[in-house]
Design a protein around this nucleic acid. Structure first.
Length: 272
DNA sequence: TGCATTTGACCAGA
DNA sequence: TCTGGTCAAATGCA
């Protein structure tokens, strides 16, 4: 995907050289630099985090060393679509389960706060579900309960120190029903990631319980969220997007780490 | 050896 | 009975 992105950016740069658009050329060059660095990092490092060794074909060795009650569902398979790293939203998550959900080829992953087992037991959990048959893939993250761990206080503090960030939905004409809609993200938030790009957004719901310990509805918010297919919708039409008129769920902090909750820089897909 | 991940089993609710 | 959420033993890597 990065290679394809680089090719597209190069084509854009070539087109812009025909006309005098210095600012746009600079932007295209920035995209190219980002792609080059990402590709260099990908090629220069080992293939990411470790993965388990695939189970031996035939399964003879496995069945000899494991109880009969356990089998490797992935035996012999070489394709794995789930990620092994935790999506970075400033919190640390521990995966505690994975389940195939009816009507979706992709499993749902279950995470709980890594501080769940510490004193006080943080109750926060989240689910990660890849939407079926969408290209590029879209992942729906659903949060349950608010963090009560010390990490939450740290992140809340960070929020107060960060400049506002507003994620604007609907800058591009969206399909009727507005799902999926388009997310246009602003300037200078992404470090080396270029501005004015648009990525698909999926509508989801934040199930977290609002916490009085967290800042009031601040700048780091996401419009009307729902994971239900029945009421999935965008809260605002492209023509009448009004942040103050919508219902908002507090979504954490507004640091760049928070933004990574939405975008997977490795795969070029969007999370919410 | 410690720890995170995997995955079938188990449980509760519809 | 079915489905989704969680448990916990097994597993593998650092």
């Amino acid at each position: 995907m990065m290679a394809q992105g680089r090719k597209s950016a190069a084509a854009l740069e070539a087109l812009l050289q025909v006309q005098d658009h210095a600012g746009m050329r600079e932007l295209a060059a920035e995209i190219l630099r980002c792609c080059d660095r990402a590709l260099a990092a990908l090629h220069g490092k080992p293939a990411g985090r470790h993965k388990r060794k695939p189970a031996p074909h035939g399964g003879a060795a496995t069945t000899q060393t494991r109880p009969k009650t356990r089998t490797h569902a992935s035996s012999g398979g070489t394709t794995r679509v789930e990620r092994t790293r935790s999506w970075d939203d400033g919190f640390m998550w521990t995966k505690y389960g994975q389940k195939h959900i009816q009507g979706n080829h992709h499993p749902r992953h279950y995470f709980r706060c890594a501080y769940a087992l510490h004193a006080g037991g943080c109750p926060a959990t989240r689910h990660v579900q890849r939407s079926p048959e969408l290209d590029p893939p879209i992942y729906v993250l659903t949060y349950f309960a608010a963090h009560t761990c010390s990490r939450a206080a740290t992140i809340a503090k960070d929020v107060k120190m960060q400049p506002p960030l507003v994620l604007g939905f609907g800058s591009t004409a969206a399909p009727s029903g507005c799902s999926p809609c388009w997310l246009n993200y602003g300037d200078n938030v992404w470090g080396e990631i270029s501005r004015s790009q648009e990525l698909r957004a999926e509508v989801t719901r934040v199930e977290s319980t609002p916490s009085s310990d967290l800042p009031p509805a601040g700048p780091a918010v996401v419009a009307q969220l729902s994971s239900s297919a029945d009421d999935a919708r965008c809260s605002s039409s492209p023509a009448a997007w009004d942040p103050s008129a919508a219902d908002w769920d507090y979504f954490g902090n507004n640091s760049s780490d928070y933004v990574r909750e939405f975008f997977d820089f490795e795969d070029g897909v969007l999370y919410q």
